[in-house]
Design a protein around this nucleic acid. Structure first.
Lengths: 205, 205, 205, 205
DNA sequence: CATGAATGAGTATTCATTCAT
DNA sequence: CATGAATGAATACTCATTCAT
C-alpha cells in the first residue's frame, strides 16, 4: 500500500487495496466516467486525479498529456470490443447464425462495459485521436464489410452496397442502446432478441 | 429577411457584405460549424467571432452567453427538423406510405442542413441545454411513438415495444448518414430508397 | 440593460423638457449619483448614458473621456463649495462669529448638495484628478490657514499648528455628516448648532 | 505600471525569500497597498499578483475571488484595530484618562498600520463587504456609544446626542490623519498630544 | 448634432502542466 | 515514485471609445 501523507486514507479509491502500478488503471477508470459525462474538453485534469484518488501530478507520471489519456482509453476499449466481437467468429455457419452471434456479442459488450461503449460513441473524437487509434476503427469496419460481402455472394443477405447495410445495422444497434438509455428502459434478453430479429429482416435477402 | 440558399461555404464573410441584424446569423452559422467540428467546450468564443467576421464583444450584444448561443442553435435546428418532418403529415395513408414520407423528409433535411443535422446528433447536449430545448425533443419522440402505435393497431407494423422500434429506425437513419460521411460516400436517391426499403423491412409486421 | 425594442424618445429624462445643450448637465447629474454610489472605476459609461437618458456616444460629444467627466464634476462642486463658503466672508467679525459663519455655510451646502458633498469626500480622487482640479483644493485650504493664523495672532484661537486645527475642524464636520448618514440620523438646526459649539471649543484659546 | 515613488519596505518580495503559507500574506499585503492607492475596482488581480511576486493563478489557490481578498483584508484590519483599542480598557479611570487612552491607542494603530488605517477609511466598502465584516464595525461603534453615555451620566462629558459626539471625535481623528498625510506633515508625540487636548475640549462638559 | 451597434483591449478566473519536496 | 502548490497562458465576458447612419 502506498503511503498517503494526508490524514484521511481511502477517499475515492475503489474498495480493493491498490498495489503500486494500477494507479494507471484508476486514472483511466476515472477519466472514462468523466469523459462520458462531460466530454473531453469539459473535463479538467485535476478532476480526473481527484476521482482517481491520486495527485494531479501523478497523471503526468503515467501519461504524456491529457490527450494521451483519451487515446489510451479509446484504443483500449476499441480493442476490447474488437476482441470480444470477432474472436472465434463462427466462420462456417450460415449468415443468420453469424449475425445473431455478432449481435449478441455486441449486446454483451454493452452490458459489461456500458461506459466504455458510451465513450466510443462520443463524437468529436476526431480532434484528439491519433493515427493508431484510427487504424483499429478501420480494421473492424473492414471485417464487417468482408462478412457482408461473403453473405451476399451466398445470397443470404440482400445485394445492397455493404457500407449502407453496415451503417444501418450499426446505427440501429447504437440507436437502440441510446434510446433505451434516454427512456430509462432496461433491455432484457427478450428485447435484445426481438431487436436482433428486426434488424436481420432489414438486411436479409 | 435574407434568404440563405446555399448550404455551402459561407465562412469569413467579407467585411462590409452584411447589413445590421444578420450579424446574429453570421454568429450562429460560425458557431454551428465550430461546434460540429470541435464540440461546445472545445470551441472558444473568439474563434466564433473570428469565423463570423465580427468582434468578440459583438457576440455578447446578440447573446447573453456562449450557452445562449448553443441553446438558440439547438432550438432553431430541432424546430426546423420537426417542422420539415411533421408538417402536413399524410395521416390517411397506409403505414408504408407514411414511413416513406418520414424517411425522405428526414433525408431531405440532412441534405439541406448537413451541419444542422450533425449538430443535433452531437452528444453531451445535456450539460448546457435548458428546459425549453428539451421540450422540443420530447415532442418529436411522442409523435413517433403515436405514429407507430397507430400502425401497430392496424397490424401494419410488428408488435414490438415502440421505443425499441424508434431506436432502431432513428439509429439506422443516423448510422447511415454517419457511415456515409466517414467513408465519403455520397447518398443519392437510389441509395436513400434502398436504405428506406431495408429499414421498413425491420419494422413491418 | 436588456435589448431596447421601442424606438421611443424620452425614457429616462427628467420631467422638464430639455433644451439642447443641457444634456451636458443631465450627464453630469447622472454621473454624480453613480460615482457616489459605486465609485469612479465601478461605474460604466453606458450606465451613465442610460441614467442621463442619452446615447452612449453623446457623452463623447460633450466630454473628452470618462476622466474628463469626473474632473469636471470635481471642479464644479469644489468651486461651488468654495464660493458658497467664502463669498462675502465677514472679515471684520471676531473669530467666534467667523467660525459660526463658516460652519453654517458648510452645513447649508451639505443640505443643498448632499451628493456633491459625498462626491467630494470620495477618496482615491488622486488617481484621476488633474492639476487644475487640485489647485482649487489648495486654494480653499490656504484660506482656512490664513483665517486661523489671523485669529491665532489675535489670541482668539489656540496656538496649535494650523494644519492640525484644520484637520480637526474639517474632519469633525465630515465625520458628523458621515456618522449621521450611516445612522440615518437627520441633522436639524439644533444639532448643527450643538456640534458647532463643540468644535469651537476644540480650537478656541 | 505607474511610477513608484516610495523606496520603502515590502514590495516585490525577493523570489525565494518566502516559504509556503505566507504567500497568502504576500497577496494580502500587495492587495492592501493597491486598494489604498487605486481602490478596489481600480485594481486588477494580475497587478496584485505581480506586486506580491506570485503567479495570477496562485491568488485563486488562497482566495475564492477578488472580493474574498477585500473582505479578508477588511475583517483582519478592523479586528486588529478593535483589539488594539479596546483590549484592557481602563474601565475604572475618569473619562479624561479613558479618552486619552483611546486616542493614543488609535494613534499608535495608525502609526503601526498606516495602510491598514487608510484602507479602512476607504469609502464604498458597501458594494463588496459581506455581513460578517459589517458586524465588526457595529461592535466598535456600540462600544464608543456606551463609553460616552457612561461618562455623560457621571457628568464628565457634555450632554449632547452621543452619535454626534462620536462623529465629531472620530471625524476629527480621521481628518487629522488625512490632512497630515496630504501635507506630508509627520505627526510626532507632541502633535498627537496637542490634538488630543483639542478634541477633549470639544466633548468635555 | 445624436445615436447605439460594433469593437478589441482589458478583466476575473480556470486549467493543463511542472517541479520542489 | 507521488504529490499538490504554483504557474501563466487561455477563456468567457465587460467596457471605454468610435463611427456609420
Amino acid at each position: 500500500m502506498t503511503a498517503r501523507t494526508t490524514p484521511s486514507s481511502t477517499e475515492r479509491t475503489p474498495p480493493r487495496a491498490r498495489a503500486g502500478a494500477d494507479k494507471r488503471d484508476a486514472i483511466l477508470t476515472a477519466a472514462l466516467a468523466l469523459f462520458v459525462e462531460r466530454g473531453f474538453h469539459g473535463t479538467a485534469v485535476p478532476e480526473i486525479a481527484d476521482r482517481a484518488g491520486v495527485g494531479a501530478g501523478t497523471i503526468y507520471r503515467h501519461f504524456e498529456s491529457k490527450e494521451a489519456v483519451v487515446n489510451e482509453l479509446y484504443r483500449r476499449h476499441k480493442q476490447l470490443l474488437a476482441t470480444r466481437v470477432l474472436a472465434d467468429f463462427p466462420a462456417e455457419c450460415v449468415a443468420r447464425e453469424q449475425f445473431r452471434a455478432l449481435w449478441h456479442r455486441m449486446a454483451r459488450y454493452v452490458a459489461d462495459e456500458p461506459l466504455g461503449f458510451a465513450f466510443l460513441e462520443l463524437h468529436n473524437h476526431r480532434s484528439y485521436l491519433d493515427a493508431e487509434s484510427r487504424a483499429i476503427e478501420a480494421r473492424i469496419r473492414d471485417f464487417g464489410v468482408a462478412f457482408l460481402q461473403a453473405a451476399q455472394r451466398r445470397g443470404e443477405v440482400r445485394a445492397t452496397e455493404p457500407m449502407i447495410l453496415i451503417g444501418i445495422v450499426m446505427g440501429a444497434f447504437i440507436g437502440l442502446v441510446r434510446f433505451a438509455a434516454e427512456c430509462k428502459l432496461t433491455l432484457d434478453d427478450d428485447a435484445w432478441r426481438a431487436a436482433e430479429q428486426c434488424v436481420w429482416e432489414a438486411i436479409r435477402s
